[in-house]
């Protein structure tokens, strides 16, 4: 028989799993995803080469489900639950961390909606094959470029701020000083992801390849 203590431990561990899943695998995958897409900043050919390589990894679908979609689905559903259980008051008490709390909820929803759209169009409608030209065509439309920019910024903020939350919620950063440091680390992460993400979008939209000098 399961005891009440065991039940509460399960619900507690689920909560911790939620913040962990945002870092690993979701955060880690986001880093990998941004990195692979950065090949667009080298050259279209390089991008297509890397894309096709990724598209042909063995066990692709199970790996995607296990390492990406399931964690995102869990993270999102649990996140929505958290969202509903809070009554925000950042507008009347506009302290920095309180705004972060509110923004974390909104960026979470935005990022999730965007990811849903992104996966649907780029993964499924394209039958798992995407080329530089496909993306460049989408980015040519300013409305889609803007949509992607919002998605990139929301995900970057959510990850950066989430890292700070993770440090606090896992008891890694206890002192006010270490929490401040974790906050800066999160902020730098968010900025780095935003810059990289927007650069990739710019690359597709303007056929901008700042790293083409790396090519032999």
């Amino acid at each position: 028989m399961r005891s009440a203590a065991a039940d509460s431990r399960t619900s507690f561990l689920l909560d911790k799993l939620h913040s962990l899943s945002g870092v690993i695998p979701i955060g880690a995958y986001l880093a990998e995803h941004f990195f692979e897409n950065s090949y667009a900043l080298v050259s279209p050919a390089k991008y297509n080469y890397v894309a096709s390589k990724l598209e042909t990894v063995p066990w692709r679908l199970p790996l995607e489900i296990l390492l990406i979609w399931a964690p995102i689905a869990f993270h999102a559903c649990y996140g929505l639950r958290i969202w509903w259980s809070g009554k925000q008051n950042a507008t009347s008490h506009p302290w920095m961390a309180n705004w972060m709390y509110l923004l974390q909820r909104w960026t979470g929803v935005l990022a999730f909606l965007f990811i849903g759209y992104h996966v649907w169009t780029v993964r499924f409608l394209s039958h798992g094959k995407t080329t530089y030209a496909d993306i460049a065509q989408t980015m040519a439309d300013a409305r889609f470029a803007a949509l992607y920019a919002v998605g990139v910024l929301a995900a970057s903020f959510h990850l950066g701020n989430g890292l700070w939350n993770f440090a606090c919620k896992w008891g890694l950063a206890v002192t006010a000083r270490s929490q401040r440091a974790a906050g800066w680390f999160g902020a730098l992460t968010a900025i780095a992801f935003s810059v990289a993400g927007l650069a990739i979008l710019a690359g597709f939209r303007f056929h901008w390849t700042p790293f083409d000098s790396y090519l032999p």
């Binding site: 619900s11 961390a97 309180n98 606090c168």
Partner: peptide, 21 residues
């Protein structure tokens, strides 16, 4: 710690950090 594991426990904290203000 057992008491804080369950419903209403520490997991409910979402780090808005208003308390300290």
């Amino acid at each position: 710690l057992d008491a804080l594991m369950g419903p209403g426990g520490i997991a409910d904290c979402d780090n808005a950090q208003n308390c300290v203000k």
